[in-house]
Design a protein around this nucleic acid. Structure first.
Lengths: 227, 227
DNA sequence: CGAACTTAGTGTATATTTTACACTTACCCA
DNA sequence: TGGGTAAGTGTAAAATATACACTAAGTTCG
């Protein structure tokens, strides 16, 4: 059996929650090739751990290091994938067309402002897609995304993880909009702020939003703890 | 890479939280064999899913079907296991002594009263070990157990999963003792009962505990919902 | 320069949930 | 029948969560 990792990379552009998808060649009926969107992922190399493989995929994709990454589930249905992926698959397809692949799902949160598609090795091939409008993907990738989204929702409220999707300096309204979009429900402004501000890792900056056509908002930042 | 599943099987004997361990042959320095305790597990067969593999391991081990089983984490450090397990490993050891194995961790909750070691194919080889006194195990199995226990603690409070470890008919004191032992802290009796009884799947039976040398307790049962 | 527009920012009262706490009851046994 | 043992029960206080509406600070345009 081969083992891959697949990354559900979430991003937020102030309006929509998006994920990064790539174009991928896939054997449609065993011999022809069709183009289809898929999650970024790759086979785990012989000398790397699962986490390392996921970091590598992410680095190649986004040129970003140190971003939030978390394993959330292994997918091992025997029929989920036959054959391999990307550059790999064509080559090994000849040798072993029925090679089974299981995958370990990771989800990742990136600040979209940091993401520079030109710097990435997948440049042009990767695109942000609204997570609520994902088309039919290769393999079981739709299922993987659904599970990743469930996990994200859970961690968002349990661990206040939303900062990872915002710029270093953000307003509370941005954060609230992010929560509302991910959780798909309206939140009360005052109660939301009370909740966020009782987290002592959130600190107000001596700085205000600029260039908006209304009262500028206080900027906040999130202090990561060293471990 | 080979893929295995490992099962952390929890049981509760009214006093201690235990897990099932088996004796396993393992290559110590690449050629000699030493006996060591390990988690029950096996390689995933070519035509089965991860869940199916875990159920199979569990069935062979305990002769029990339909018990609580949940995937919790994949472990894929490249050095975690070299060589295979059980019957498999000796055979494949000759062919491929450096074969890497990743594993998918499952945890399982069994009612100890249902567990009949004589019926199990692992009879005699498996034993219940106090989860707080697990010796040094093969591979990374201690780490897997630690993670399983964390997950169990989380699900115990989040999903009221404790019933799976008790007989069909149980007293609230039994359940409370179970919670106290798993969470490793004392709980208030009245508050605990209020909490449990507001779960409408818990119903009181017309029956009392027998053969105890004190006031006999009301028996309760837990109604599984059909899906 | 002020009127209109837009989002930021703020406090309080009520309901709900969580916590802390101690005595009586029912059965067994000697 | 008296002593031992765990079962069973209610209430007050504290903490947390919810509902709710107006003023403030900028921008733009006439």
């Amino acid at each position: 059996m081969d083992v891959s990792v697949d990354c559900v990379v979430f991003g937020f552009d102030d309006q929509k929650l998006k994920i990064l998808l790539i174009e991928q060649r896939q054997p449609a009926d065993g011999s022809t090739i069709k183009l289809q969107k898929a999650l970024p992922g790759d086979l785990v190399k012989d000398n790397e751990s699962l986490d390392e493989a996921a970091r590598r995929v992410l680095l190649e994709l986004t040129s970003l290091e140190g971003i939030y990454l978390k394993q959330f589930q292994a997918f091992g249905d025997p029929n989920r994938v036959r054959g391999l992926k990307d550059q790999e698959w064509l080559r090994s397809f000849r040798n072993n067309p029925e090679r089974r692949v299981m995958t370990v799902g990771y989800y990742s949160l990136v600040k979209m402002e940091d993401f520079n598609p030109k710097a990435a090795s997948f440049a042009g091939k990767a695109q942000w897609i609204d997570v609520y409008k994902v088309p039919l993907l290769a393999f079981d990738h739709n299922e993987i995304i659904d599970d990743a989204l469930k996990m994200l929702r859970h961690e968002l409220v349990a661990d206040n993880i939303g900062f990872e999707l915002l710029p270093d300096k953000f307003t509370l309204s941005q954060l609230q909009r992010l929560h509302e979009i991910i959780l798909d429900k309206k939140l009360d402004k005052r109660n939301f702020r009370k909740n966020i501000l009782k987290n002592e890792r959130v600190t107000a900056l001596n700085e205000k939003q600029k260039g908006v056509l209304h009262k500028p908002a206080q900027l906040f930042t999130f202090n990561k703890v060293e471990e």
